[in-house]
């Protein structure tokens, strides 16, 4: 199992315990990274739209995927493609936000991920 994330808090808290694939980037770019991995045969283990915080509100997302690539998992691919379509409906409204707000969004993403670990 590995964590694909753009959330620095997840990297900080979990990188000593799990394989964490961290890269800076937007919510949308993170979903595309997960989709590319799904095409390589990684299976999705957690839902990419976990939580009810809207994709244009939070900049952070962490998704659990399988350890190594296997046969292409069509269901994983369907879920991530649908998630990208859904997220694209929400134009990003907050390129700028306070450090406090960023910290709150990081914490929410972290607790959502934790509930799956």
């Amino acid at each position: 199992m590995q964590i694909v994330t753009n959330n620095p808090l997840v990297r900080e808290k979990l990188q000593d315990h799990y394989a964490v694939d961290y890269a800076e980037g937007s919510f949308g770019e993170l979903l595309v990274r997960v989709r590319d991995k799904a095409h390589l045969g990684y299976r999705l283990l957690s839902h990419p739209l976990s939580g009810s915080v809207k994709p244009n509100e939070t900049p952070y997302k962490s998704v659990l995927i399988s350890d190594g690539p296997g046969a292409l998992d069509v269901e994983s691919l369907t879920i991530i493609e649908n998630s990208i379509l859904t997220a694209d409906k929400f134009p990003v409204k907050y390129p700028q936000m306070s450090a406090k707000m960023r910290a709150d969004f990081q914490l929410i993403d972290y607790t959502l991920l934790q509930s799956a670990l």
Binding site: G51, I108, T111, L112, Q114, S115
Partner: peptide
């Protein structure tokens, strides 16, 4: 029932 973590 919503059941996913803090505030959820």
């Amino acid at each position: 029932l919503q059941s996913q973590g803090l505030m959820h």
